[in-house]
Design a protein around this nucleic acid. Structure first.
Length: 262
DNA sequence: AACCAAAGCAACCGCCGAAGG
DNA sequence: CCCTTCGGCGGTTGCTTTGGT
């Protein structure tokens, strides 16, 4: 079995959208499998039932607002997050015209932005990593991660967490089976395929042949196919591992793939 | 003006419970 | 009942746009 480890997003075109809408008008939204089959046939691109459903629910359903969240909505979101945690759909239902995806994006984007600002210029050991939405259960961390867009980067950069907040975060981390970093280390040290790992440089060379490489993909971002033997790489790991493109010589693709830990 | 990092956001996919055979 | 399929939800990724130098 071979599969892509890095996924490639395929945007829906206007034409595809209208075909999807027409199909749904005909079949309804109860049987996504037949919707998918119908749509795929007409647009000549495979769109899974899931993809069709996502597109409909997150974008094409009537009444979805595309404007940025208003101050009032943001206030509501903050309040609701305290109550609902990560039940995004529940929150979206209480904000007319907003989808679960929008609400979710809003929080993840906000948190990611603030973590970046906070980490900027800090020692590695002081850097904050996203663990889970449970991080927001600590008021100090919550205030930091949900800082409004306008707050200056400098201010966040200067912010330090108290001992209490740090130990809260530590306990959160311990609740998990292991951080991505630990999982990575584990994989790197236990799998034969990584046996040539040079710890000092943080480089891994994978010497197996590619099962298949589509030369069309080589030019842009890594979306080529990996050998099946490295499948068990957990999601979310790309933060810690970087794939480098294989060499291409005289149109031939080298069978070497470099992975670097970041 | 050209580059690059960050932000914004659409899309993808795993997990799991419900449904149905 | 068990097994399989479906789809709802939540979390993650990556393409495009924006903004800073």
């Amino acid at each position: 079995m071979v599969r892509k480890i890095l996924r490639k997003a395929k945007l829906w075109t206007l034409k595809e959208d209208s075909i999807l809408k027409a199909t749904i008008k005909k079949i309804g939204i109860k049987n996504w499998r037949s919707v998918s089959q119908d749509v795929s046939k007409k647009i000549k691109i495979a769109r899974t039932a899931k993809q069709c459903r996502d597109r409909w629910l997150n974008y094409l359903t009537k009444g979805i607002k595309i404007s940025a969240f208003s101050e009032i909505e943001i206030k509501k979101l903050y309040k609701m997050q305290k109550i609902y945690g990560n039940r995004w759909l529940k929150m979206a239902k209480r904000l007319p015209g907003r989808t679960e995806n929008q609400v979710k994006n809003f929080f993840y984007a906000m948190i990611r932005r603030n973590i970046r600002k906070f980490n900027k210029g800090k020692e590695e050991s002081e850097k904050l990593k996203f663990i889970s939405m449970d991080m927001l259960k600590n008021n100090e961390v919550r205030k930091l991660l949900l800082s409004k867009k306008g707050l200056s980067s400098a201010k966040l950069r200067q912010t330090k967490l108290s001992k209490e907040a740090l130990s809260f975060l530590k306990s959160l981390r311990n609740d998990q089976k292991g951080t991505n970093e630990e999982i990575t280390k584990n994989i790197l040290s236990n799998r034969d395929i990584f046996k040539d790992l040079d710890q000092s440089e943080g480089k891994v060379e994978i010497l197996e042949n590619f099962d298949q490489v589509n030369s069309d993909n080589i030019k842009d971002k890594p979306s080529f196919l990996f050998p099946s033997c490295i499948l068990p790489i957990p999601l979310g790991l790309s933060e810690y591992l970087k794939y480098e493109m294989p060499e291409v010589k005289n149109g031939e693709i080298s069978d070497r793939l470099i992975m670097k830990s970041l």
